[in-house]
Design a protein around this nucleic acid. Sequence first.
DNA 1: CGACATCTTGAGCTGGCTCAAGCGTAGTGG
DNA 2: CCACTACGCTTGAGCCAGCTCAAGATGTCG
Lengths: 264, 264
Amino acid sequence: MTIPATPGHAEMAGNVNRDFLRHISKLATGSETEIGMPIRLETRRVPKNHDVFSEGDTLRDVMFMREGWAYRYRLLGDGRRHIVNFLIPGDFVGPYFATAAHFCGTLTDVTLCQAPRSDFTNANRDCPALATALEAIMATEYRLLSERLVSLGRRNAKERMAHLLVELYDRMRRVGLLYDNSYEFPVTQEVLADTLGLSVVHVNRTLRSLREDGLAIVGFGRVCVRNIEGLMEVAGADDTAHAFPVHAAGVASVSLPMAAAPAA
Amino acid sequence: MTIPATPGHAEMAGNVNRDFLRHISKLATGSETEIGMPIRLETRRVPKNHDVFSEGDTLRDVMFMREGWAYRYRLLGDGRRHIVNFLIPGDFVGPYFATAAHFCGTLTDVTLCQAPRSDFTNANRDCPALATALEAIMATEYRLLSERLVSLGRRNAKERMAHLLVELYDRMRRVGLLYDNSYEFPVTQEVLADTLGLSVVHVNRTLRSLREDGLAIVGFGRVCVRNIEGLMEVAGADDTAHAFPVHAAGVASVSLPMAAAPAA
DNA sequence: CGACATCTTGAGCTGGCTCAAGCGTAGTGG
DNA sequence: CCACTACGCTTGAGCCAGCTCAAGATGTCG
């Protein structure tokens, strides 16, 4: 579950998220490297089932996922929980702001790389490409979030589940963590329920239904996609077409200078 | 429904959104003004019930709401619609990206101010405060969106409705458009349904229920809040406490230099 | 005045919920 | 090495929040 930083990834130029990931990856290889500006990326480990930070925390550091799975969540007064988003290797953990607007918990042991927010802001100012890349990442997150919103608002249980599985299929593929149409998925049905706004029982039945339709098998910490076209169709293919590409014309040409920075 | 740019707003210093609003307001007063960098803010009008832009559009301009109500929405293949967000005066319309990820439609006649994305990017680079403010705006939008996500995932119809009304109460108040605990609300029950993931019929019953509880009266293009504490309690006060403040320590001290720019 | 949009209410239906029970597996401590 | 516990998965049964269908009222605009 480590970000592969092999030359094989060079073909994926033009994708900011991926370029940035390579960048992060390279930075994280050595314990600290320069980005034109002095940014020290530290490595931090958080064990499984712990919070990385809590709602309301003031955070000195900006963070990226290096290994493992985490999730953003919020709690309601009476104990109800809603999971906003999953975080996989390469994802920006944030927060975008010095004050965390949500909790962040781990599903597995997690390795983060982090840098003081102030350093980051400076580098951001002095390196337009970095700023653009970050903007792109934010835009992508916004897009994912609104896509999820559409799911909860207007899709039924099966469609929601299919949509989530396709989204993660795509995200895992982008970071080279898709193997033979399957990917690691350390997510219990309870967590899934809190993500999709369903009950655990109904999540179970929905997964069974997808399995019986030969679309995907979810369990034992993995998702095995049997029929990605079918899954996308259930998810609402028209919609996902716009949603998943990270891209964007205006950013495709960005090449992060620090991606070429030598590892220490 | 015009952004008031009266001195009375000076007391609200420290709130980026509001500072920025005043800034936009001032800029829009004259047809063009300088922001240290040459940014020409043009005014554009879009009539009621029209799209400002469509999903997939490549947009030359970055836009802000000056007057009127609009909304971001997405469509599913079979015609289902989901409304992601409402846009009120002072809001950044975006898109954050050159390619629109959603439709943007108007609920009333709308006046926008807009500037070419390229100009904006330059100004953004040369004016750290502007960049920070934009970042804050994005973070706020992200927060609103995840709050809405929690609503759709884990709140029932009444809670969702109350939450939305409180959110808008707060946003309208921030831009000085709250009058005697009521605000303009040019939103049909159908639009409301597509926002909250409910049916029109159930929206109607939910509004009746809130009315009968003496919490809020929604209709005739207005929301009249009768009992804001009660409404917040139904919405889940604990949660909203974190959600609504735009603020954030790290940004509170930002004072946009161009906010002081003289009108033409 | 006709056409259309919006709101309202009743009546019956259903997708997803709750409650409850059973099962397999992974620790954990004696 | 074997209880014992805890957690996650699975399935059945009954229920209900919110849905769909239907019809009428009201307003509005050309």
